[in-house]
Amino acid sequence: MSRYLAKRLFMAVLVLFGVSFATFIVGHLTGDPVALMAPENAPQEAKDELRRHLGLDQPLLTQYARFVGRALTGDLGHSFVQGTSVAGLVAERLPATLQLAFAGFVLSLLIAIPLGIIVALKRNTVWDFVVTALAMVGQSAPGFWIGLMLIAVFAVELRLLPVSGYGGFAYLVLPAITLALQSAARLTRLVRASMLEVLGADYVRTARSKGLRERAVLVVHTLRNAMIPVVTMAGLEFAELVSGAFITETIFAWPGVGRLAVTAVYQRDFPLVQGVVLFAAFAFVLINLLVDLLYVAIDPRVKLA
């Protein structure tokens, strides 16, 4: 177990290095941040001085080495544009992002799991057809369209909820629903498929033929096993939410990491882009690791090797 953990951690570190290097190189390949930062009519000498001031006149590898060295001590550098520490900027946005990601995630599980199970049990009935069709449509509709429509109906027309912004629970409702609807559509289909597969498996049939009551079959065998692929998928969904629900955050003016990232990319704010990408990769790696550990809890047959 501990050997497995050590191996996974080593891999995680390697992956983070790969990600940081790729980001760094791509970010520096093209585009001059100074051209974007300085006003259109700034004098050339001032631009050169700014370039020196930001350390952009150094060779690429020197800049990267310096970045990694500082990153190891938790210092991700300073944002070119905002002038403040990158770690601070990301940390500032983290609560809003986690709040939204968590709310969206929980909501989508609350929709997807019961619905998926029911539909799987009522296979080939009208219910199955209706829910599957709805899930299909939900999966096919562009997310921002859903978000804008929810605002038009619930915030402007009915004035039940705030249009956008960050505050109490009421502000969380619409963005969380926007996120949850898309992710729930995917998960519902997955739960249904997974349930159907397990229901058809030999050991479930054996259990039934032995005369166990239907509910016991369901709970003991089916559910647990059916959840394994769902956990993987849900982990990925959650990681994607934490790394930034870019469009939802933009529409609802939600001050999260996603909007921070998008703005940073457009402003060519290299240190901030690097910081956000590294953070997101870190979140991905961490969540995947947790998912692996969850496997052990759910399915004792999974051997960690």
């Binding site: 930062m37 300085a38 006003p39 700034a42 001032a46 631009k47 001085e49 700014l50 001031h53 930001l54």
Partner: peptide, 8 residues
Amino acid sequence: APFNTLQQ
């Protein structure tokens, strides 16, 4: 620097 790029 860096103010002189923006302050004209």
